[in-house]
Nucleic acid binder design. Structure first.
Lengths: 200, 200
DNA sequence: GCAAAAATGGACCCGCAAGTCCAGAAATTG
DNA sequence: CAATTTCTGGACTTGCGGGTCCATTTTTGC
């Protein structure tokens, strides 16, 4: 399993992943063929199978991992420091901006809906992403609870789950409508809910 | 465009759509072939192309429309009568139950992510579904506002958008995790938000 | 600098699934 | 009850895309 890769090999492998990711963003998973990836990355068929012996499935999984990492990375440092209402709003704006820029291509969504059933690995990638994401939000809620800005009675994890669902749904709606209205509404509703918790 | 269909023809066409829908729910869009549909519905290749001249794409679009109708139908009559907190909770339970039963197969999601780019019709189907769904929720909010159970200051449409996003996200999360935790959390959070609006 | 291992190029195979075609059966219509 | 249209069966074509193979070049480690 631990094949030795030279510096050049690692670079090529990475180039393939990023090229495939870009191709998928532009054309979608189903329409993207190995030959497209090959052409875009200036590689040959044998290289693709050299670096991803299990073929397309393995490559797609690697792309999914790559994209999942991006999702969280793009929200930092805001997501890691939800320690004031200002910070929460900054995060909100970051998320909206990130997805506005991404537009109607959500590589992860498509990858998972395609790999989902066949590859248990794909679901694991997304589950892991969700767990981490939710946990960072929950940390933020707990921090604000310590400051007395959010009611203690709220279950941090469950509330974070609800908020995260709103974000996911906002993104999904955007994929069909092209607008971030729902994403913004969900985030605002969630944050407003947190704020209101100490006022009632 | 308006081909004349006999009673028998209409029945066959419908049988094909429903068979394809079932097949897709079980095996997914990509793995479902026209031949699978043919076998399941007891039809022949020529029938498939007779009723759907544009081939697979047209069939998938028809399936998407069929599934979209189901989504709203499955929420009735609860969704249409959000006139008391009891009714809201009944709706919540209906939604959770519907998706719990559906499990990890969301035909619509997959269909759209697959058709999305190529067929403008697919996005239209989903957009239409979302608009109607949101409008029914918004009607419920307005009704409760008239009763003084929800603060007048809330924008019914925007709040409905946020709530709907939560539901969508809850479903999406369920597709990866298999649990309805997030869906329930989002619904509870949303409804709690509505209730709390008059208390602060 | 020279074996051994890794990286690369590209021709080739192969199966599958979408789509075509036409002949014949069942129905509709006047 | 004919004539016309719709419906059905299934054999056939075709192209595409994933995957294999091997020969050649480049890099690595001693």
């Amino acid at each position: 399993m631990t094949r030795t890769l030279t510096a050049k090999g690692t670079a090529t492998r990475q180039r393939i992943i990023e090229g495939a990711a870009a191709e998928i963003r532009e054309r979608g998973v189903i329409t993207t063929t190995l030959d497209d990836v090959r052409a875009r990355t200036g590689t040959s068929k044998s290289q693709l199978f050299h670096y991803f012996p299990d073929g397309k499935e393995e490559l797609l999984l690697a792309v999914a991992r790559y994209e999942a990492d991006q999702v969280l990375a793009d929200q930092q440092p805001q997501l890691g420091r939800l320690t004031s209402w200002r910070a929460w709003e900054a995060w909100r704006d970051t998320v909206v901006e990130r997805y506005r820029r991404q537009g109607q291509r959500c590589p992860l969504h498509v990858l998972v809906s395609q790999l989902g059933r066949s590859t248990p690995g794909a679901q694991a990638v997304v589950s892991e992403l969700l767990v981490q994401w939710q946990s960072e939000i929950a940390d933020g809620i707990r921090d604000m609870q310590r400051q007395g800005e959010i009611a203690e009675r709220l279950d941090a994890d469950r509330t974070a789950a609800g908020l995260l669902a709103g974000v996911q749904g906002g993104v999904v709606v955007m994929l069909s409508t092209g607008h971030t209205t729902h994403l913004e509404a969900a985030l605002d509703l969630g944050i407003e809910y947190l704020k209101a918790s100490v006022r009632s």
